[in-house]
């Protein structure tokens, strides 16, 4: 996954570092411990909202936990504390009901705004239909006459077998790589239609901040507009049976020119047959 622009956030980093220190003793350079900022306007908004809520929770937590810890230290019986006898105070009870309520009301404003934006799939530039299968994805570029299946890459599939003696570090993006990624243009509003052929799946790419269930018999919609070319990886997020953990999602975002060239190439028969040979007979169905 890309996730560039991800900055260290003080407390979160400290907590993560503490955990890593307790675990392996050495921090990995590429260790991720926070939601990626991502590569879309929406994903940045989601990340900002996530961090805002996080800091609000940290603030409230610091207040409450300090009060408890102060009580535990200051009002110890072993230190000679005498118990008071108060058990009610209407004013303070109203205060700590109304203030949290007010904070929540304020937070609903950006949350609702972002949600409304994410829900609006109108005026898209192209539409791709996704179909979930046990356990692969099928992509259909509507009106473009291009469609294909996308399955876990061969080397990952070999390495994930029980008892396989394969060094996972030698596998390219272990479990997060497919034979044919779904290729999309940057800067364009892409509408996805998603459904399933068997059980419920969920299509998720963290860098795009999109996750939607593929429900058999129903079609869901969502959209994204990617700013930066690159390869963005995700996984099926809804338990879908035995190989739920082995149906990754890989999105390759190209410039509109490269995308157009790629699309044209998909329609050429020789590419079709070459791909069919390389990826195995059951896996590719480019029309």
């Amino acid at each position: 996954m890309k996730g560039e622009g991800m900055r260290a956030k003080g407390l979160l980093k400290a907590l993560a570092a503490l955990m890593i220190g307790a675990g392996s003793g050495g921090a990995q350079a590429d260790l991720r411990y926070n939601m990626p900022v991502g590569v879309t306007e929406v994903s940045r908004g989601v990340h900002d909202l996530h961090m805002t809520m996080f800091w609000i929770c940290v603030g409230i937590g610091l207040l409450v936990f300090s009060a408890i810890i102060y009580s535990m230290v200051r009002f110890r019986k072993s230190a000679g504390a005498q118990a008071a006898n108060f058990h009610e105070n209407t004013t303070i009870e109203l205060v700590w009901t109304i203030i949290p309520f007010a904070i929540l009301v304020i937070m609903t404003v950006p949350a609702a705004g972002l949600l409304i934006k994410m829900d609006d799939t109108s005026q898209s530039d192209l539409t791709i239909k996704i179909t979930g299968y046990q356990w692969k994805w099928h992509y259909d570029y509507l009106d473009e006459n291009v469609s294909f299946y996308s399955v876990l890459a061969q080397d990952s599939n070999a390495a994930r077998q029980l008892g396989a003696q394969i060094d996972l570090k030698s596998v390219d993006h272990y479990l997060l790589n497919v034979d044919r990624p779904v290729v999309v243009p940057i800067g364009q509003k892409i509408r996805f239609l998603i459904t399933s052929n068997d059980v419920i799946h969920a299509w998720w790419v963290p860098d795009l901040a999109v996750k939607k269930d593929a429900v058999p018999g129903f079609i869901n919609e969502f959209w994204t507009r990617i700013d930066v070319p690159g390869v963005y990886r995700g996984q099926c997020a809804e338990l879908c049976g035995r190989d739920h953990g082995f149906m990754p999602v890989v999105v390759e975002a190209k410039t509109p020119e490269d995308y157009a060239a790629w699309l044209e190439a998909q329609r050429e028969p020789k590419i079709e047959s070459a791909a069919a040979v390389s990826a195995g007979s059951t896996l590719v169905a480019a029309r």
């Binding site: 996954m1 907590l15 993560a16 955990m19 890593i20 307790a22 675990g23 392996s24 990995q28 590429d30 260790l31 991720r32 411990y33 926070n34 939601m35 990626p36 994930r160 996972l168 570090k169 993006h173 272990y174 479990l175 997060l176 998720w204 963290p206 995700g234 996984q235 099926c236 997020a237 338990l239 739920h244 953990g245 082995f246």
Partner: peptide, 28 residues
Amino acid sequence: FPMHFSGLAGMPRRIPDYALQFTTFNQI
């Protein structure tokens, strides 16, 4: 506690195997 981090970093639940970047938190 580490599950907060592995989840935010992108690890789905109910999977029997995971990509290498989730290793540290899972070991803890």
